[in-house]
Design a protein around this nucleic acid. Structure first.
Lengths: 344, 344
DNA sequence: CTGAAAGCGCTTACAG
DNA sequence: CTGAAAGCGCTTACAG
């Protein structure tokens, strides 16, 4: 059945013109049949359908789009398509897009502002109707001409930089504050914080929540109890080991995100003394570890759904000022965050 | 800075014509500048650039594509954008596409053949240059006209149905056989198998591998030791509990995929007797559970990379017969698969 | 009920 | 070095 031949390649696909010629009708009649518009005799319609089947015609939506204006597609720039945290967000955006008859173009910024920009503008050049961006950079003025030209844009998970726009976030500050307060409530006074790089908004918000909880409890924060930086395992491991040793080791750790938590679990498992742990972000199997890992959970799917719904509201013509939506987090108690402070 | 006004929306974006008018040059000159073609005076070029900036012009790639033929985009139909197993595959495909200057459109079939078809054909209507499909259905003849018309197509993770096409797979049969043989080598004689639904190719291949290993060891397979079906936790739980009880309970279990493994771990943790476990597919934190979970690992990223590279080879004009590539799996020993049979 | 003409925003092929 | 005309494959607006 492999009827592929080099000369019958892209470019000589049958067009409506070909169908019209074969069916012996006008171009517009073919268009009517293809689009299910009324006003075509059953007999004419059949002739056109036959020609379509015989030729293997499929409407070129790119051409259609050029004429119609709307592309029925949206672009999603996320950090990493392979990151399990963003996967449900990705899927949620897809589902909303699908419900609105739109296709999804997506790509990974790899936490590189230039790559984020490149992707977002490539999507704009394809004239996506809307754009959802998980910011890597902190200056999004480059999107202002696009937004002004009508490409609806929503930022998610992190705020937009230097521009007014819709934003959907989790309450990083409140979540971290509550998580740290939980450790304090279980008797800890020396609590460490390991988070992502300081230029990432969620990292500094969570750190702010940590400091707020410590302050509220009247606890000091020693300099070496806080470490922000890349979430590569080596870096996190070194930071954790430093906090767990020395004259005044921490008895508990707050992990600023998923990747930090996972490495923290490994380091704690190998540590001389037990260390209590609360992590930001839930992850699969957190309940199966021993002890189960207590986490501050965000709802990534809801983040995606909310952002996409906001986007389509704009596409449906709702005009209102940019809004900032903050979704609550949830503390899930599983054991690691309820360990008492170890004797030092 | 929110200069968005309802009348200045999509449709009245500046075009090359507008730029040409403002710069006082011809259309083609603008095209030359935008595309970096030679033969433009520095002075003319500057005038055009100024007009572009002033107007906020961005080339409409949809129009460009219509004229040029190639869209520089590929479509990926996978099962679920939120599935952690496919996330690295997704990312790997993206990276290869990016290296070739192509954008990625993707979507989830949700294991529904109709939805797979709908997505794949929608991508074809957008005239993607190529298509990568993780099949949900088992009849892909619907793609033959598209393939014949020049849309390069590669199937990955599962074979195409009823049509000749490029396919990239993991060695499900061999992997399962080796995993079960590993359990046999550790003294097990009563081994259960829980897998995905029987219409899914990888599920039956893995079952075939299980049977082959049992046969090679001269071991019988009792009827209730095998269970194929949806991987929903309730179903897997019921199947596992049935195998773990009764007069001749299994002492070991082979889990046909990720989702089955995770549920199996939970059921085993709560079981009266220890049950050895080997799972198909690796997963994060498998080594942190106690015991660590021994798995047959596939390289999902390599699966995606291989498929995408094959696709772009075709797009680069290489003409050859459809090929089936089978990637090896790797047994990762972590503890759960080395438990001895429990006394019954 | 049907179709010819114009146009969406670009690029191609050609002429000056 | 520069640009006018034709065309990519559709849809829109209009006429018969």
């Amino acid at each position: 059945m492999a009827q592929t031949s080099p000369q019958y390649r892209y470019g000589n696909r049958p067009t409506m013109k070909d169908v019209a010629a074969r069916a012996g009708v006008g171009l517009k009649t073919v268009s009517r049949v293809v689009n299910g518009e009324p006003g075509v005799t059953p007999d004419t319609e059949r002739r056109v359908q036959d020609a379509i089947t015989a030729l293997g015609f499929r409407r070129n939506d790119s051409a259609r789009i050029l004429r119609k204006g709307r592309t029925a597609s949206i672009g999603l720039v996320l950090e990493d398509l392979a990151d399990p945290f963003y996967a449900p967000l990705n899927r949620a955006v897809e589902e909303v897009a699908r419900a609105h008859g739109a296709l999804l173009i997506n790509g990974s910024s790899a936490e590189d502002p230039d790559r984020e920009r490149e992707l977002a503008l490539a999507f704009c050049a394809r004239r996506v109707d809307g754009l959802i961006v998980i910011p890597a950079g902190d200056d999004h003025r480059y999107l202002e001409p696009e937004i002004a030209a009508g490409i609806a844009t929503v930022f998610v998970d992190r705020p937009a930089g230097r521009t007014a726009a819709d934003v959907v976030l989790s309450d990083s500050f409140g979540g971290a504050r509550d998580g740290v307060a939980h450790l304090v409530a279980h008797g800890h006074r020396r609590i460490g914080f390991i988070g992502d790089q300081p230029h990432i908004h969620t990292a500094t918000e969570r750190l702010r929540g940590y400091r707020a909880a410590m302050r509220a409890a009247g606890l000091p924060v020693e300099e070496n109890w806080v470490s922000l930086g890349p979430t590569a395992p080596e870096r996190v491991r070194a930071a954790a080991e430093a906090m767990f040793s020395g004259p005044r080791p921490v008895t508990a750790l707050f992990a600023g995100n998923n990747r930090v938590t996972v490495t923290a679990v490994r380091v704690i498992a190998a540590a001389a003394r037990p260390v209590a742990l609360v992590g930001f972000d839930d992850f699969e199997l957190a309940d199966l570890l021993s002890p189960g890992v207590t986490v501050v959970a965000q709802d990534a799917a809801r983040l995606g759904r909310t952002a996409a719904e906001r986007l389509f509201r704009r596409l449906d013509g709702v005009v209102e000022a940019p809004r900032r939506v903050e979704l609550p987090t949830r503390l899930i108690v599983r054991g690691s965050g309820e360990l008492p402070p170890a004797e030092s």
